[in-house]
């Protein structure tokens, strides 16, 4: 009898705690929305999102510059990371001798855990000077090195281990017999990878890429350290950018005396949260659909 009571009690307690994740999501959305209400009431949403006039002291809070900063940096990171990661995962999962694979898998795991600030330090010490002294002159422009490209490179390198780790795992789940079926028809390894293995692994690979993308998208510190943080919409990859997370990190907590300032920054945080939510929902929908059409 006592055992059953205990069982029921523990169940109720666990249920309460199991509600925490859902509760936190709601609390975050509601909390951030609540705090950004003042600015949403004072300004139309279109102005907040699409005006690039950011003059807090004059009461102008256009976030467009920062949104573009985030998009530029994420796009560059994705453009660098996706092809490199896919090719590297294919090499490690399909071509590399087993020894090499056994050696590199834990290494990739280790690297996935390195904190983003450390990537930022590397960016400041290596990538920024490299762009300033070599890459930008090569392209015929002058740049401080603190720019979209630097941030993109640092982010790309940061998400490498994450994407590669998951992609390799996914490629390994494709049964060997499927490869054999294609090879037995006289297909080359590459034809097998391209037409059969990748196709079979596509849902998982998409998930890996989305994972990496959402990591890059919300990354704060590494970007903050190398993006330059100039409030202007970048025109080339050699221009500085000021992504949303960097804006929040730099300004939040300082400027609480300026009216509406914190409200605008929390709106930025809310925007980041909503994008993550949408990406999650969209990724799920895509995965379901891809799974259905492939399997």
């Amino acid at each position: 009898m006592i055992r059953l009571v205990k069982d029921k009690l523990a169940g109720a307690g666990m249920l309460a705690l199991a509600g925490v994740p859902g509760l936190v999501v709601f609390a975050m959305i509601l909390g951030l929305y609540g705090r950004s209400r003042p600015i949403l009431a004072a300004k139309p949403l279109s102005e907040l999102l699409f005006s690039s006039s950011w003059h807090p002291l004059r009461g102008e809070f256009g976030l467009f510059t920062f949104i573009m900063g985030t998009l530029w940096v994420t796009a560059v990171a994705v453009a660098i990371a996706i092809p490199l990661c896919l090719l590297a995962s294919i090499y490690l999962a399909e071509y590399a001798p087993r020894r090499l694979r056994e050696w590199t898998a834990p290494l990739i795991d280790l690297l996935a855990g390195i904190p983003s600030v450390v990537f930022g330090v590397w960016g400041v010490l290596v990538v920024v000077p490299l762009i300033k002294n070599h890459v930008a002159p090569l392209a015929g422009v002058s740049s401080s090195g603190y720019c979209v490209l630097a941030a993109g490179i640092v982010l790309a390198v940061m998400v490498f281990p994450v994407i590669v780790h998951v992609s390799v795992e996914v490629l390994k789940t494709v049964p060997n017999e499927v490869r054999e079926a294609s090879l037995a028809l006289g297909a080359t390894r590459w034809q097998t990878i391209r037409h059969v293995v990748m196709r079979k692994a596509m849902p998982g690979v998409i998930a890996a890429v989305v994972l990496g993308l959402s990591r890059a998208f919300g990354e704060t510190m590494a970007v903050l350290m190398v993006a330059g943080n100039v409030a202007a919409v970048p025109k080339t990859v050699f221009d500085p950018a000021y992504p949303l997370p960097a804006l929040i990190a730099n300004k939040y907590g300082e400027m609480l005396s300026v009216p509406m300032y914190d409200s605008a920054l929390l709106l930025a945080a809310l925007a980041l949260l909503m994008v993550v939510l949408l990406v999650n929902v969209a990724a799920r929908a895509i995965l379901l659909r891809v799974e259905r059409s492939v399997q």
Partner: peptide, 15 residues
Amino acid sequence: RKKMGLLSQKPYPLP
């Protein structure tokens, strides 16, 4: 390999 067809223990249709 092109000279030979292969049937394995379990059918593995390509995706």
